[in-house]
Nucleic acid binder design. Structure first.
Lengths: 354, 354
DNA sequence: CTGTTAGCGCATTCAG
DNA sequence: CTGAATGCGCTAACAG
């Protein structure tokens, strides 16, 4: 078969235990012995058997990262950042602490989220990072808390990134001020003079959707427009629902002067729909996104949005997962969402005000 | 500690072997016994120990996916597609064949590619999928072939996706007709009447870069412009090099009427640079991308590019990796790259022709 | 169809 | 500082 520890030991004229010690570098080993072992490893092209050592040591060097869909830039950037803290190049301690990230696409499905968690528990993952908003359903929340508790009981570190702390489990959390971001976006539009706003919300019953909507309503309330602008349509976080949603909003209120999209991707769909309807951005209708993904600045006109520090947050989550950073007080770190006012928003045109 | 197979066996009043059999579903087990075992599993909340079974069975259910950077949409889409063929929801055979994808960011570095391959060998990965173009350096090519041979010798399936077959190793390959795509793009511009083209190539010494450049030159040659248009600048596959590269091309040849970018992301940078220079697209300068990533159609003007069927190719690679699909004849499947003529290209304006 | 018997390759006691 | 012995939890023959 394959070359094993014993083969290396024989070649180096030492015991298997010694080889193990050299390789893991936890125990003192004589310099001479050490180099002899290392040479044998080279010569035999020995590669540790991960499963075997995971079994013996009762812990693997796999880290699970749950995302809705890795093809969505939001999650890709987050996952990439988490990644950046492990594996070759990250080098948290000087070499052999190589962790590997298992990326799991849940597709936003609660069941799959649970299934993946079980799969990761089966792998005896060293840590698990759950990214993005989560479904707000008591049943699921409880099931999730239970699963996570089992994981932490089994020694797996659990970190939440991009979602609020989970009731029933004290996982370390890195989250975004979605409420504040949405509020700033709405205030920005109101200050430009907009009064008839359309809001394209994300999928119902998700934390992210709710928080952003709450921020929006808060701003509206402060401006004394609480009751008025309940023009809201829910949809998925994709371009198509942006397109369809924009048309639906216009159907309901043709005199709309601004549309707030659930995120940048949705905003792109909104822009496409408006263009197809012959409406100019921002002269006829202002549009805002959310997240400030890389493409936002290249949209035409450049998208006014709110910047989420995804890379920072992801990296932070990665370090917390690997226990390389002291946890924030209270276990929760919240990142601010800055307004990026660009060309897709402007004062409403008097003509459309009618 | 944690509950084990033996615990379940005791609870169900059977032997550990039987439990293992019902869980893996490979051997015939009496219906009655089966359900008793399953019940015990439920009651004890038993979760298989992955490392232990991997050790005993000498194979894990981990699949490595090497990408340059998962934050780059090109790789994200590819990886997502590979993913889609495994894990919950893919269900290739009816349930428990759950594979998990380990995504490895090589950052385009040959050394890291090798390191990750070793790490995957250590995990006894069931398969490895290498995506994207590769560095063309004899030393690296050989080192890579050696590593891959070790992997296949150890029983790991190796699939290449988005790069040409590797000399020295007969891995299954799913690749794109980069040459043809670049040729079609160039022909498109030539047929519109362009004669002064600028080419923004990817990083030097990479297969993708070379193939696209070759296609470009082939088209130029056929048009009898071989010697003429050697206006080429190399750069990374990112927006910034698109921006800088466009400025550099314009410096070298201010009368340029078209720029072919290494890919869509680079094209976005080119567009930004042109706009900043007060040049209109496509009236003053036509621009083309490559890949047809989701955002290409939302650029303004919509980007003329070449469509790579990333999702199809990724899924195919995933199935091949899992041995769920019969390999193509010769072990190599090549996907065609279709021209997507959109608004960023048009005949050159007579005024600029001077 | 089911139980028994051996390891899989390594990390750790515990002695020396 | 090093070696010998033990077991991690599971699968895979081999019998029955």
């Amino acid at each position: 078969m394959s070359v094993t520890l014993a083969d290396v030991a024989a070649r180096a004229g030492v015991s298997a235990a010694t080889v193990s010690r050299v390789l893991n570098g936890n125990y003192p080993v004589a310099g001479e012995t050490r180099s002899r072992v290392l040479r044998a490893v080279e010569e035999l092209e020995y590669v540790v058997n991960g499963p075997a050592s995971a079994l013996a040591a009762a812990t693997s060097d796999l880290v699970g990262v749950l995302v809705n869909d890795i093809a969505d830039p939001f999650f890709a950037v987050l996952a990439s950042a988490v990644q950046s803290e492990m594996g070759p190049g990250a080098d948290g301690a000087g070499g052999s602490g190589q962790k590997m990230a298992i990326i799991c696409n849940t597709g936003g499905s609660p069941e799959r989220e649970l299934t993946y968690l079980t799969l990761l528990q089966r792998q005896r993952a060293a840590a698990v990072v759950l990214t993005g908003g989560t479904v707000e359903d008591p049943t699921h929340t409880e099931a999730l808390a239970t699963r996570l508790r089992r994981l932490s009981d089994a020694g797996t570190r659990v970190v939440l990134c991009g979602r609020p702390p989970l009731p029933g489990h004290d996982a370390l959390t890195v989250t975004f001020d979605n409420r504040g971001g949405a509020r700033r976006l709405t205030e920005h539009l109101l200050s430009l003079g907009h009064r008839r706003l359309g809001y394209l919300a994300g999928p119902t019953a998700r934390t992210t959707t709710r928080h952003r909507l709450e921020g929006h309503h808060a701003a509206l309330g402060e401006a004394g427009l609480a009751g008025e602008a309940t023009l809201t349509v829910h949809g998925a976080y994709d371009r198509a629902s942006g397109y369809d949603g924009a048309l639906e909003l216009l159907r309901r209120e043709p005199r709309l002067t601004a549309i707030l999209a659930a995120n940048d991707t949705v905003a792109l769909g909104v822009c496409a729909a408006l263009r197809d309807r012959g409406l100019r951005i921002p002269q006829d209708v202002s549009v805002t996104g959310f997240d400030d993904l890389p493409f936002a600045v290249d949209a035409t006109p450049a998208l006014t949005t709110v910047r989420l520090p995804l890379a920072d947050a992801g990296a932070r989550a990665g370090r917390l997962a690997l226990d390389r950073e002291t946890p924030p007080a209270g276990g929760v770190a919240t990142y601010h969402a800055d307004l990026m006012a660009r060309a897709s928003t402007a004062p409403p045109s008097p003509s459309r005000a009618r």
